[in-house]
């Protein structure tokens, strides 16, 4: 759902200004990276994945006092050419058992959907990579069970916390294991 919106937005602002826009994206991302590096937030980190500055890898440490404590979760971020006027596309790369994350790693979070008048999403240009990752980190401890992508997980979260924890652990892979798969 969120994908269709973001494509629409991209098409609107694309065109002749695209090259300049992507130059601005790179500049913005560079400054975000600088902030992330110079003022790091514990439990969160992100870095460009390769020569393309608009594709990043991120790492979130599972928050303490949640079923995800002590787990390291990998994500990928992909920034559209009109970023920060459209949200980045964020996916979990580590397999995760969570009410708001489907089995392909897609995340249901309002700030990851395009915002503005007439839109259901809550993305805003003042948000950045750091805030997005922090929101996702807090989503781990406080799922939005009202609109689950994984109904079973939503039910278990409310009913059986220990079974939930077991399913989380069963599904989780450490980053090193993901690397081996790849």
């Amino acid at each position: 759902m969120s994908q269709t919106h973001s494509t629409g937005q991209g098409a609107k602002s694309g065109g002749p200004a695209n090259a300049a826009a992507s130059g601005n994206v790179v500049k913005r991302l560079q400054s975000e990276l600088m902030t992330l590096m110079t003022q790091p937030t514990a439990g969160i980190s992100a870095f460009p994945a390769g020569s393309d500055m608009t594709k990043w890898n991120a790492t979130i440490a599972g928050p303490a006092d949640t079923p995800y404590a002590n787990l390291t979760l990998k994500l990928t971020l992909s920034y559209p050419s009109n970023y920060p006027y459209a949200p980045p596309e964020v996916l979990f790369k580590s397999p995760i058992y969570h009410p708001n994350v489907d089995f392909a790693g897609r995340i249901c979070l309002d700030i990851l959907k395009p915002g503005g008048a007439g839109k259901e999403g809550a993305w805003s240009a003042v948000l950045n990579t750091q805030t997005v990752l922090l929101s996702i980190q807090s989503l781990l401890g406080e799922p939005n069970n009202a609109s689950p992508l994984n109904g079973e997980a939503a039910l278990l979260w409310d009913s059986d916390k220990s079974e939930f924890k077991r399913k989380v652990d069963a599904r989780h892979l450490e980053p090193a294991e993901i690397e081996d798969d790849a």
Binding site: G50, N57, P175
Partner: peptide, 14 residues
């Protein structure tokens, strides 16, 4: 600063 970047790169990019 360079070292922070290297650490970030290695942590997130493997």
């Amino acid at each position: 600063m360079f070292e922070t970047f290297i650490k970030g790169m290695l942590r997130d990019g493997g």
